[in-house]
């Protein structure tokens, strides 16, 4: 009993070292794990897979460096998937960090030979419209007019000078929306405005923290699919047969989950043993 009592009073810092180890060690011994994509991830993959060549997709980013480890692999996966299918991509974001990270994702994608050789051109095959303040109101405003909402792209080039944006007036000219979000404003705003009000089909990727709250939208088909957290990112990489940090981090994620589960079990055993002892 003294042992358990001692364990309950274990210094936090020892636990900190244990969890750091659980995360770092598997990074050094990468073992290949087989993924079983969730139905929600499969839904997003299928929806994008079904889009015809030449369609125009909006990819919006509402995340920041703090949540990039979860969202960035999804963003990279989506860009690769769209480029492979010959889909035109309009990037934007409702968080100011979003467009910058989307730029970084593009760089990552073009580092790979396959995409470098596609020779995709800015302004013709993809654009980055940047950030606008106002959250959900921005989406509502895009429903009236995208050029009025985004008079220029992120770098200040007038939108009329971008061939891709020619003929794009509002959501009527958008085939699909992919939203990658880490909080508010984010996926619910896109569902409420882009999907429910302007009837554009959409799917989303989000941090694991917000994923469970979005499941009701999946059942009603307000979302065609959902990538939840790093697991969702890894599923997407697995489905699109590409490599990325989603799958790369999965061993660490697995071991860390196992360690946390063990912590909870040991902690509870210790708690009940000590409590029983005290009752006596």
């Amino acid at each position: 009993m003294g042992f358990f009592r001692g364990m309950l009073n274990l210094d936090r810092r020892i636990i900190f070292i244990l969890i750091a180890g659980a995360v770092v060690v598997p990074l050094f011994i990468p073992f290949h794990l087989k993924m079983h994509p969730t139905p929600a991830s499969q839904g997003l993959y299928n929806a994008v897979e079904k889009l015809p060549e030449g369609s125009t997709v909006i990819i919006s980013g509402e995340y920041d460096p703090g949540t990039a480890p979860e969202i960035q692999p999804m963003m990279i996966g989506a860009l690769k998937h769209c480029f492979r299918k010959g889909i035109k991509v309009i990037l934007m974001g409702l968080w100011p960090q979003g467009p910058a990270l989307e730029g970084q994702a593009l760089q990552e994608v073009f580092k790979e030979k396959e995409f470098k050789e596609m020779n995709l051109q800015y302004g013709k095959d993809y654009v980055n419209l940047g950030y606008k303040a106002g959250g959900a109101v921005v989406i509502q405003s895009m429903g009236t007019s995208i050029p009025a909402t985004f008079p220029t792209d992120m770098a200040g080039t007038p939108i009329e000078k971008l061939p891709l944006m020619k003929g794009i007036r509002n959501f009527n000219d958008i085939t699909f929306v992919l939203d990658f979000s880490a909080g508010d404003p984010g996926t619910p705003a896109w569902v409420m405005f882009a999907h429910d009000r302007f009837h554009v089909p959409m799917a989303a990727g989000c941090t694991a923290v917000s994923a469970p709250m979005l499941y009701p939208y999946l059942q009603t088909k307000q979302l065609s699919g959902l990538l939840g957290g790093l697991k969702g990112a890894a599923d997407y990489e697995w489905l699109t047969k590409s490599s990325g940090t989603g799958i790369r981090y999965m061993p660490s994620q697995s071991i860390a989950h196992l360690v946390i589960v063990i912590f909870i079990i040991i902690g509870n055993i210790a708690f009940f043993v000590v409590r029983k002892g005290e009752k006596r």
Binding site: L27, A208, V209, G229, L230, T245, Y249, I260
Partner: peptide, 12 residues
């Protein structure tokens, strides 16, 4: 899911 999120960020 929240545990998953926190761990992912640490891995990054």
């Amino acid at each position: 899911y929240t545990v998953m999120a926190r761990i992912s960020l640490l891995i990054g």
